[in-house]
Design a protein around this nucleic acid. Structure first.
Lengths: 224, 224
DNA sequence: TCAAAAGTGTTCAGGGTACACCCATGG
DNA sequence: CCATGGGTGTACCCTGAACACTTTTGA
């Protein structure tokens, strides 16, 4: 290391992950009750301290894997929080990431092991530190991207009905959508392919199952 | 400090500022030639190390003031860069900010004193570290916001002509704009007020000077 | 008188929005 | 046979894009 750098202040840096999924058809976020001080007993985001030999993105992926067993999911850096007194225990700079996951694929044992659980977003408890700000920023990012990028499919199971897809858009965008207009737009998107499969859990008639296939798209997406 | 935190790795953290202004009517960025290793002699962004007693936003404001003498300008956090080997001299985590400034108001002596200068963006030199990524992300952010938020006025002098405003939009958005359509949109915005002043430097006829007055807007903007 | 920038309306097309009824099936 | 969610087409409006000429005045 160059001696010139030795004089500077050094900081503990961690990553926090806003992990969003559809749990029981409700937009939910993975939270854990803190087992240690500070803020012991309060809900908080999944987090972990950055290590000397890992980059920020790697740290975020490690935390996501540690808490869910998931890899290769949509994940974006949201914002870095560095107010002096944001953590009463020590000066900690937190880089916030947001991940969108398919809860069907996650490892529930890991969640249990970390004292974590899925919490309905419309029933958000108070969070420790500035984690509520993190959640707000993450949601704003998701809402903003939702209109442009095909990130909805990160939240849905591999096969989904158009009603599921529409309900997801309605929850995230916070507004009702006309069914026919929605399906018209879906029909114009070549990446959303209808399958022969039918879901009969929601209606007697049954609904066609679709899946998202981005191989027809020439846009490179999901790069971090 | 809680003993629990004592065991974690610590990092040097700095802020880098992508400071953008209109210099000689060209979209330009403030760059300085590094006087020290690593990357000595190469162009780089304005930066400074975060101190123990200051938050990230404060550090960014300090750097901006230090290099330009400006305060209370549009400034946003862009992204945090934390790859392990991004800085060959030491592990440094860099929080990138972007500021839009009115170059008429800046303190040129400070710029000179830091070996810095305004560089035309369409003639961008190679930059040290990952600073080119920072510039790209900052520009993407600016372009994205430009369509929604009235941030163009941060770059212009207090009084400006519609031609200046249009040229700025054309540069930032990277496309030609129809003059009549542009002026129609301007006319619909109550915050853009025509004054009795006339600028005769650009034409014999003279162009009306406008100024931006956001007191009529009920949106709260520019919050960091 | 001419060069150079300022200023000014109308037309058209396409996308987005609003809107209501029949279908299939299990119980 | 009925209750429940699935599935389908059209009309209208409004926003956004294209487009050319007159005005002013200093040199």
């Amino acid at each position: 290391m160059t001696p010139l750098y030795s004089e500077h202040d050094r900081f503990i840096v961690n990553v926090n992950c806003v992990i969003i999924g559809l749990y029981n058809g409700r937009l939910s976020i993975l939270l854990s009750r803190r087992k240690v001080e500070p803020e012991m007993g309060r809900w908080s985001l999944m987090g972990g301290f950055v290590r000397e030999n890992e980059g920020l993105d790697e740290a975020a992926k490690r935390v996501l894997f540690d808490f869910t067993g998931l890899e290769n999911v949509f994940m974006r850096q949201v914002h870095t929080f560095g107010a002096v007194n944001r953590n009463p225990g020590a000066r900690v700079i937190s880089v916030c990431y947001c991940a969108l996951v398919n809860v069907d694929e996650h490892d529930y044992m890991r969640v249990r092991g970390h004292n974590a659980s899925w919490v309905d977003m419309s029933d958000m408890p108070d969070l420790g530190f500035d984690h509520l700000d993190m959640v707000r920023r993450a949601l704003a990012m998701v809402k903003c991207r939702f209109a442009d990028e095909p990130i909805a499919f990160s939240l849905l199971p591999r096969f989904f009905t158009l009603t599921q897809l529409q309900q997801l858009y309605e929850i995230v965008l916070g507004e009702q959508i006309d069914k026919r207009n929605f399906r018209k737009r879906v029909a114009e998107n070549p990446c959303i392919e209808k399958t022969e499969l039918v879901d009969k859990t929601m209606s007697r008639r049954g609904a066609a199952l679709y899946h998202y296939n981005d191989s027809l798209s020439n846009l490179s997406r999901f790069h971090m």
